[in-house]
Design a protein around this nucleic acid. Structure first.
Length: 475
RNA sequence: GGCGACUUAGCCAAGUGGCUAAGGCAGAGGACUGCAAAUCCUCGAUUCCCCGGUUCGAAUCCGGGAGUCGCCUCCA
């Protein structure tokens, strides 16, 4: 497997720290609002990374934090006159709702800052002892000039940054780039007691303390959006490696932005769409499919029109799975010499080599279409045998286990109905009746009635397709 | 000012030195159908933003230019 490592700027062969195991840390959201599409991209992508590592047989340990101590949470709590921890808890729950909708599996651990204050304090103490940090009026700052490798991730050097820095100079810091490990708390802010007085952790230290706690002083993959490269991840490296003396994360992966009208979707620009707003208009499988249709490091434009054209593509794959199931349920008279033989193995290989190459999900999605095409052709020509169909079905399932586009039913089969429009018993029986009436009309060449039924059903969102084996319908 | 990314058919999007530049959407024609839908078959970039260079050979490497975007401040 090859992974593009931000640290080296190259694709590298993936070598896990421990054979057969992968440890992953992904920066999770600050829980002061519902998540938006920009948050959803890394969520879905790294979920897919995790799934693929599992597919490759690795034992994966996956950690994603919640930043539940933060200025923005405090601001919201003051505005709404509720406790900061209640704000955080509320949006953690809302996060899970969105993540579940997007078929994102839970991390093995979802650590929260508020529950790791001791680990954070210990780590800061170590940095103070080692003279990497200094204290000013109850604040503790990391001294970036003490850490020689500072800038190795983002590819900048201290001098350049100082020259062009637009950071408002904080007189308490000895270098403008020094960053807070511990912040003295103001009135009406949550606080914890520490050797430096009442306060709370700075932003970056949490990820270092928590990743080290759960994954060890050195681990395999650290992921997040590319806006985190500087300063967040740069600072994580500095404080972690300063504290432990070891290489922090071995591979750094960063996803590109979601764009709106060629501009980055961001909270400060106000041009963001909440995941749940989007899910009101588009089904979650489509959203996930769309996110994975572009390579993760490329920017991805987000607008309704593009979603809409993706919808047709996804429908094509869904149709193919339906066709496959249908054929599987009809006993195929004789086992024809199959046209699929060999092709299925090729497709599987293509899928794997796409994913092996820095998680090229866009190419992998292409192989999904190849598979669909193969299935459609063979089913149409009736030149298949059941074993082939079974194998094709398994392949769809295998690919889907990695990409996570379609949900699965209780039997582990892919749900072919569009998400949110599952058929139920009443609907089934009603449709049986209606289609029976329509079939009669057709038999009597009463096409006006037959077409009227079909057109009316279409208007309410039900598509009827006539096949040699009778009609089929879908929502 | 510093650093970096991107520019491939109407649209989306793979491809990073060499067979005919994946795939999807849209579009055209055909098969199938009572008509449709679904599906299948056929068709689209003499060319990869522009200009130079390296090379037997470049969309792919190097130099220059144009445009777009991002990071350097909270942000996924």
């Amino acid at each position: 497997m090859k992974i593009y490592n931000t640290l080296t700027g190259k694709k590298e062969n993936f070598q896990p720290r421990e054979a057969g195991k992968v440890s992953i840390y992904v920066c999770g959201p600050t829980t002061y609002n519902y998540i938006h599409m920009g948050n959803a991209r890394p969520l879905v992508f790294f979920d897919t990374v995790r799934r693929y590592f599992k597919f490759k047989g690795y034992k994966v340990y996956y950690v994603q934090n919640f930043t539940d101590v933060d200025d923005k949470i405090i601001n919201r709590s003051l505005k709404e006159n509720v406790k900061a921890e209640d704000v955080a808890e509320r949006f953690i729950n809302e996060y899970y709702r969105d993540a579940d909708d997007l078929n994102v599996k839970r991390a093995d651990v979802h650590p929260k800052v508020s529950e790791h204050i001791n680990e954070i304090i210990e780590m800061i103490q170590k940095l103070v002892e080692k003279d990497y940090a200094y204290t000013v009026n109850g604040n503790v700052y990391f001294n970036v000039s003490k850490f020689n490798d500072y800038g190795k991730l983002s590819g900048r050097c201290l001098e350049d940054m100082q020259a062009g820095s637009r950071v408002e100079v904080d007189y308490k810091k000895s270098n403008p780039l020094d960053f807070a490990l511990w912040k003295a708390s103001k009135e009406s802010e949550p606080y914890w007691d520490s050797p430096w007085g009442r306060g709370r952790p700075g932003w970056h230290i949490e990820c270092s303390a928590m990743s080290i706690k759960y994954l060890g002083t050195s681990f395999d993959v650290h992921g997040g959006g590319c806006d985190l490269i500087f300063p967040h991840h740069e600072n994580e490296i500095a404080q972690s490696e300063a504290a432990t003396g070891e290489l922090f994360s071995r591979y750094w992966m960063h996803n590109g932005f979601i764009m709106v009208n060629k501009e980055k979707m961001s909270k400060s620009l106000g041009n963001f769409f909440l995941v749940r707003e989007v899910l009101e208009k588009f089904p979650p499988d489509l959203v996930r499919f769309y996110l994975l249709s572009t390579h993760y490091r490329s920017p991805l434009d987000f607008d309704d029109e593009k979603l809409e054209s993706s919808r047709r593509g996804l429908e094509r794959i869904r149709n193919s799975i339906r066709l496959l199931e249908e054929a599987l349920h009809q006993d195929n008279e004789e086992c024809a010499s199959s046209c699929m033989t060999g092709r299925l193995d090729d497709i599987k290989k293509s899928f794997e080599s796409a994913m092996d190459d820095d998680f090229n999900t866009a190419l992998a999605v292409g192989t999904l279409f190849d598979l669909a095409h193969e299935v459609n052709t063979c089913v149409q020509n009736r030149s298949y045998c059941i074993e082939d169909l079974q194998k094709a079905k398994e392949l769809f399932s295998t690919f889907n286990n990695v990409l996570g586009i379609f949900k699965k039913d209780v039997h582990g089969d892919i749900v072919t109905e569009q998400a949110g429009s599952e058929k139920n018993d009443v609907a089934e029986k009603l449709m049986d009746l209606i289609l029976d009436i329509r079939q009669n009309a057709r038999k009597n060449k009463d096409f006006a009635t037959a077409d009227k039924i079909r057109d009316t059903l279409k208007e309410i969102g039900i598509t009827v397709e006539d096949t040699p084996n009778g009609p089929r319908w879908k929502i």
